[in-house]
């Protein structure tokens, strides 16, 4: 459970980063969300054997991290956490796909290895971009932006509540697990059975908390719908940011910059 507490602290850090004051922090969340969506769609739309055209896309997270003054190592750590999933998804590719696509001297690169590398790179890019977006914007602001972009309101509210009470639930769960552990004396306790009961209690407690929260909402005049807040309009800077990145992502998607640069250099060589 120590790891859950550490993960929570990490999430809190992500939130603290979002309260920064750089130019990127001040942009409308919708512009950042849309730019990230376009970026993700462009990155995942490449063919499975393509790697070189993906590399220039690194410029998007790199720009956001640099201008947003975000801690690179921390964000890389977050991406590394997700890497095992990507590796698990792609690790069988080299085994099944043995078609030889590239030979560099004695090094034979099969289609399987290329698609595996492509999966890992694409995961790194997309997950990195999402973490960077969250660190620049904050989860609640992203939910509100998604709602204004057309996501159903109840869904946005569910997400916001989920995020708010994730901390409370994880702390409660952590305490319960610690209490269980302290009475296990290093043995298994009742094993899975005791965890099942612990989870059941957590569910009931969550239920009770939801009832109390609803009471507190009713006490403050809640009538079933959340009151609308004043909606900010997109400013010039937001539109400019969005346009530049959408244009750049699409341009990078349509032309292989790495290949062109490579061709330019090899063309210059005698």
């Amino acid at each position: 459970m120590a790891s859950i507490s550490a993960a929570l602290l990490d999430l809190k850090r992500l939130d603290q980063l979002a309260s920064g004051t750089t130019f990127l922090h001040r942009l409308d969340a919708r512009a950042k969300v849309l730019a990230t969506l376009v970026f993700i769609v462009c990155v995942v739309s490449f063919d499975r054997y393509q790697i070189s055209p993906l590399i220039p896309f690194l410029i998007f997270p790199a720009f956001l991290i640099a201008v947003g003054e975000l801690p690179t190592r921390y964000l890389l750590g977050k991406v590394a956490l997700v890497a095992p999933f990507a590796i698990a998804v792609g690790i069988c590719n080299p085994y099944f796909d043995r078609q030889l696509l590239l030979q560099l001297g004695a090094l034979r690169v099969t289609g399987g290895w290329l698609s595996f590398a492509s999966i890992v790179l694409r995961t790194g890019l997309t997950v990195g971009a999402v973490f960077t977006l969250t660190a620049l914007t904050g989860f609640p602001a992203i939910c509100r932006a998604l709602q204004r972009l057309g996501m159903p309101r109840p869904f946005a509210l569910q997400l916001m509540f989920l995020y708010r009470y994730l901390f409370v639930l994880a702390e409660e769960g952590g305490r319960a697990a610690k209490a269980r552990e302290l009475r296990c004396f290093g043995r298994k306790g009742s094993g899975l059975k005791s965890y099942a009961s612990l989870l059941g209690h957590l569910l009931l407690r969550t239920w009770q908390r939801a009832e109390r929260m609803h009471m507190s909402m009713l006490a403050r005049g809640f009538s079933g719908t959340f009151p609308e807040q004043v909606k900010a309009r997109l400013r010039f800077a937001d539109v400019a940011f969005l346009s530049i990145w959408v244009f750049l992502c699409i341009a990078l998607r349509l032309s292989n910059v790495t290949h062109s640069v490579g061709a330019l250099f090899t063309g210059l060589l005698p």
Binding site: G138, F139, P140, A141, M160, F161, Y163, R164, Y165, V168, R209, R212, M213, M215, S216, M217, A219
Partner: peptide, 13 residues
Amino acid sequence: MVFHDPDDQLFMP
């Protein structure tokens, strides 16, 4: 009404 547990009362972002 101020509730017993502030976490029940503070639910907005």
